[in-house]
Nucleic acid binder design. Structure first.
Lengths: 369, 369
DNA sequence: CTGAAAGCGCTTACAG
DNA sequence: CTGAAAGCGCTTACAG
């Protein structure tokens, strides 16, 4: 075991730090971290430039508030030392961590890709770090994860939260919190307007001659599922279309596939699915069963995820502005964090009907014909 | 403007903190954060239980090292105060942040989904927080992001890094760093073994009667692209198959689609693509051009991403054990962070051939026939 | 414009 | 088993 002599790292004692990190000796005898030089601090810069740490701090944080030449020297010294501020040390006195959390129910659900990317974009554009976790569709995991993350971040963004209203209220009492794809009381939320896309989809189906439509439902606990069903119901009835809600085991490809029998039994000629995953699954099951799409069954998905235009037939769908939702939600969260009372009102986020190949005129009979 | 009277938050002065946070008065007059109660600290627990903060710290961190009844009382008090440790405050004396960074080139690339999920799983299983960012296929962004993140994390995992070997060495001199899907010198890395899947694919094609195979290449800067080509080259030649590398504009669906003309011109009867995205794009272009898959062109993708089994025909592919790579890489990173010299050797991560519908016997002529 | 000092919320060697 | 004290690397009100 190599023992490090007392002064091997730092011959000059620091101005006001007579004792160095307690475990330094042992740490330096180990491999990985031991070989790495400890990062420079503002005290190193102070020593190098002959000013106080306070001045270094000011020079680096409030440009223009100190002597321009001193600032120059300090910046040069910082540069030459490869100085990077220690975010934890800054967070302590300021209470600001510079990081934001994003919680989704399922990382591998393609719906979130663009949303996450949108959020990440505005986070890094504003020099924030994004912390990222998934709840695996479990409210319990969602809650414990949010609680675990909260102390380390300035605010959290909950996407399609499965928590109860009360749990969400409690979380938002601790730190700034924003919701995406869900609405709870007055808590800041960013949700798309599902109606435009739904109206277009309904008009399209009606025009093709469909009279009886099914909605393959999403999770009970999903606010968005409710919102979609409500908009569908309301607008179908007004158009003289009959609409029926069909339950599915899960909002996944397999969940959609396994719902085919119930869809067929319902006698509808067209079905709108809670999301594209289910629509894709339904299509796959139709193919396996020899049910032609769209000849015998028209299918419309929701979201327009990656892959929905790659199938045969390509999936007709109602697109959600996912990236825009992610961006808007993140901006909203930043406004909350900054206590920015009059954040710019965000523009509405309408859904949009995307016509592809999985819809067509109904044949005379129902799908089992 | 509502001004908060001096003692409105905290009537009892703290044992050893005569002065409270400097900006408290102003902060408390604002909205958002102003309404939130400041989180409890170990001093609150100490006061409540009549012990010192040191004892509270020990009780919470080294169970069993203090009086069992005292520990109980402290835990109860912590619970009743809703205490959560402040990770920034802990990080300062210990130098451990409890967070790990994950950098990918493109968040929306489905290849990373399972890898990211695997990494997230082991991070949260070991009570670590995952910080997440994308470099948008730019080495410059990758570098600045890594540098920005480093001070805030205990280690970073670079997935399919586009940096130069030197840049990677430099980064790893600062903090623990692990590579996934790339190898650079002795830097800890987790890469799959591409050979088994490639051999199976080649044998399959040979058996079908193909003699001339194309490889639709990925990005120049991609280590994995090189690895795949090398394994392909080596094993094709040994089997008496001719193989040719065909360049593509980008490793995306569109990049694959726009390469069709070059593929056709090459005269190969089967093509293996750098990734599934390109395979999917190529298939889409074939459909648009009326080129039958697999009758006139066999296509094999790489990775087995979401959606590759949803197309018609379903894409035959070489699967990478993405989730396992993410998990292994994260475990490796944790071992680095802990200076764990003898981390368990991870098992090999072989690729695997997945036969679906996009491969078949070649017709007499080449695809343009 | 600049410095000395106190404090952010923890941890831990040291000394009972 | 427990406490007093010092320190982690910053920020900022206060006083020149």
């Amino acid at each position: 075991m190599v023992v490090c002599p007392p002064m091997c790292h730092d011959g000059q004692a620091r101005a006001s730090t007579p004792r160095r990190r307690v475990d330094e000796q042992t740490a330096s005898t180990e491999r990985g971290n031991g070989n790495r030089k400890p990062p420079a601090t503002i005290y190193d810069i102070a020593r190098l430039t002959g000013v106080s740490a306070s001045t270094v701090s000011r020079a680096l944080n409030k440009p223009g508030r100190i002597n321009v030449r001193t600032e120059r020297r300090i910046r040069d010294a910082a540069e030459s030392l490869g100085y990077r501020i220690n975010p934890m040390a800054r967070a302590l006195p300021t209470g600001r961590t510079g990081t934001l959390a994003l919680l989704v129910s399922d990382i591998t659900n393609p719906v979130y890709f663009d949303l996450v990317r949108g959020a990440e974009r505005v986070a890094s554009a504003t020099d924030h770090t994004l912390v990222f976790a998934e709840s695996q569709e479990s409210a319990e995991i969602e809650l414990s994860t949010a609680e675990r993350l909260q102390p380390a971040v300035d605010g959290v963004l909950l996407v399609a939260s499965r928590l109860s209203d009360e749990q969400i209220f409690e979380l938002s009492a601790t730190k700034p919190l924003v919701l995406a794809n869900r609405r709870v009381g007055e808590i800041p939320a960013v949700v798309p307007d599902v109606t435009p896309g739904i109206i277009e989809a309904l008009d399209h189906l009606k025009q093709l001659g469909h009279r009886s439509i099914g909605y393959l439902a999403g999770p009970e606990a999903s606010w968005m599922n409710r919102a979609r069903w409500d908009a569908l119901f309301e607008n179908a009835v007004g158009r003289g279309l009959s609409i029926v809600e069909i339950t599915a085991a899960a909002p996944t490809v397999d969940g959609g596939a396994s719902a085919l029998r119930r869809v067929v039994a319902s006698g509808v000629t067209a079905v709108i699915t809670y999301n594209d995953l289910m629509g894709l699954g339904l299509m796959r099951a139709c193919r396996a069963e020899g049910i032609g799409v769209p000849e015998r069954l028209s299918i419309i998905g929701f979201d327009d995820i990656f892959g929905s235009d790659l199938t045969t037939p390509a999936l007709t769908t109602i697109r959600s502005p996912l990236a825009a939702i992610g961006e808007a939600a993140m901006r909203r969260l930043l406004a909350e964090v900054r206590d920015d009372l009059d954040a710019d009102a965000e523009p509405p986020l309408p859904t949009e009907f995307v016509l592809r190949e999985s819809t067509g005129a109904p044949t005379a009979g129902s799908p089992e014909a």
